[in-house]
Design a protein around this nucleic acid. Structure first.
Lengths: 341, 341
DNA sequence: TATTTTCACTAAATCGGTTTAGTTATTGAT
DNA sequence: ATCAATAACTAAACCGATTTAGTGAAAATA
């Protein structure tokens, strides 16, 4: 069973390549190809399992039916889950997804964007390192379809889909305050990224709304690359201080899970000695000891919004408006704050 | 800044497209293009940020520098982690990865394979549903480069990378036996898949090696799609039987975590009443209550082996031997079996 | 000096499709 | 009977690269 090309069909049926191409692209009727001929072509194609070469097709149409997905790390549960949704939705519309991880390296991200563009992707989805103003500006200037998610450039006018990081963190912090905790620490990352910055604001404002002045020594910003080691110091510092905290807000799921490991190692009772909450979660947060209260991100909605906006941009002929999307997080109360359930 | 094509460079420098192409593909010397001309071309290309259109390139070379990755589900932590390794290693060699999830649907998997082939991927990596004999045979017949992983077709002679599912399950079961447990249940999936079948064998043989005859009523095979509901019945049955089990082996990480949820709900003490072990793990298994003993898969090795075998096949001109790779799992002892640590 | 090699290139074919701009043959209107 | 319109196609250009087969001039060899 040799591979069959458009040319072969045309030759064998004594019609032109044009006719075959038109018919197989569903443009037979509008181009007045007779029903009989259409039938013959379609049957032949089906029988010989003809599949067009997408490279050739993409080359001549200037469209590849492919979208590029650039994320910090596919191994991270949040990104892998969003990627799953994006891929499924994209496939439903006939698009295939090229993906690459930037590992938080802006230079690499820049290269990835370029590499995706050479591959003639029809659009890009980027959870950016937020240090690639240049590439983003380039995409904007070229009016190339793209959507940012999870992290956007607040000073740039682009499409993006994010969750309300500010409000989410405010919610978990207020949850602690409502349960009577007052010395609340925050373990977060160096605030290079917009979501992280927003989470800090949410934490601060929650305290202020309870008339508590945030204390600088309760806020610890650690380096993402070295978080495994640094978190140990961070937790110890908050716990063993002369004015120890009675609760800790963790700004990411991996900070929370690693934080809990450290607390266990130090024999701190959660929630009796210290209550903890997490922004975002791992799927096992409900069965860890104790189950961790968290605000969870609407994974499915994020993925769906992203793909919807992008495909709209790709497929519509009229210029689409730029539309920021901010989704709500959901508070999932568990036992790590001492509330009886 | 307009986009620049090969033709533009040729025109502007008064050389032929051939010369430009050769030089930019590092074939200038072997084709005796003068150093001077080479310099000019390279400089011009760099200055104008020339990037070849990969579709055109792929079309004319019959090679796309792309590999296709087909997995059951990118959202599953195991597959997302292996995917991360595969993507990183592939990128290092200049390949980009197209991915799609089959969601255990053999028909969809078949379509995905076809779709990847139209897109002219240079090779395929598949964690198969194991129900696509046809497509696999087709790939074999065409001598198309591909590597299976996680799941292979035991009756077919193909390259694959798997872990020793048999020995891994034997190890965790023996661990329970060594700690004095004797009524050991197994909660697993309907054994359509090779790894799952192997895990059953490992469980059985472990018992036999301790002179215990496996009991049919201790082995519960549940439907993957409905595992959330079925596992509840399964656990209850094992626990509330007239001869209740004193330990349960879970054949996957998600069975184990869901199993633990159910045990907690039923107020069963782990490990006092029932010890549990899991094949494969979630990253939080060390902080759940109790921490779950598991055999873990060597994610990095799996990814590296897969990509190494595939790129070898793609890039070498001589026919490569077919090479099955079976990797070792590692027993991670935690507290869910009652052993004091 | 005549012939072969080598050097430094290039024209044109090719990859496998899509699309534009025609071309016949037939039908319908006047 | 004549001209315009329509039906049913097709030839050839094109997408943007790679690659094969050659070319003319200079240098080397006989």
């Amino acid at each position: 069973m040799k591979k069959v090309y458009l040319k072969d069909i045309a030759n064998d049926l004594n019609v032109s390549k044009t006719a075959v191409s038109l018919v197989l692209n569903d443009k037979g009727d509008e181009n007045k190809i007779s029903q009989d001929t259409q039938q013959r072509i379609i049957e032949y194609a089906k029988k010989h399992n003809y599949i067009p070469n997408q490279l050739a097709r993409g080359l001549s149409r200037g469209k590849s039916e492919t979208i590029g997905l650039i994320i910090p790390n596919i191994s991270d549960t949040f990104y892998s889950k969003v990627s799953g949704v994006i891929e499924r939705k994209a496939k439903e519309q006939g698009y295939t997804v090229l993906f690459s991880s930037s590992y938080e390296d802006p230079e690499k991200e820049g290269e990835l964007i370029q590499s995706m563009l050479n591959r003639q992707v029809d659009g890009l989805i980027i959870a950016s390192t937020q240090k690639n103003q240049k590439e983003i500006d380039f995409l904007k200037k070229e009016k190339f379809p793209f959507v940012l998610f999870d992290r956007h450039y607040p000073n740039k006018d682009t499409d993006y889909v994010v969750v309300d990081n500010y409000l989410g963190t405010k919610k978990i912090t207020e949850h602690l305050l409502n349960l009577g905790r007052e010395q609340i620490g925050l373990i977060t990352l160096k605030p290079a990224l917009e979501p992280i910055a927003q989470r800090l604001l949410g934490y601060n404002d929650a305290l202020k709304s309870f008339n508590i002045e945030p204390r600088k020594e309760y806020i610890i910003e650690i380096e993402r690359e070295a978080y495994l080691e640094e978190i140990e110091k961070a937790v110890s510092k908050l716990i063993l201080s002369s004015t120890p905290v009675d609760a800790i807000v963790f700004a990411t799921h991996y900070l929370a899970s690693q934080g809990l490991r450290v607390l266990k190692k130090l024999n701190i009772n959660v929630p009796q000695d210290v209550a903890i909450v997490s922004f975002d979660e791992l799927s096992a947060f409900d069965i860890v000891e104790p189950p961790i209260t968290a605000v969870i991100q609407p994974i499915k909605e994020i993925g769906c919004s992203v793909i919807e906006i992008l495909l709209n941009k790709i497929e519509s002929t009229v210029q689409q408006d730029i539309k920021p999307t901010v989704l709500k997080t959901k508070l999932e109360i568990r036992e790590s704050c001492g509330q009886l359930l």
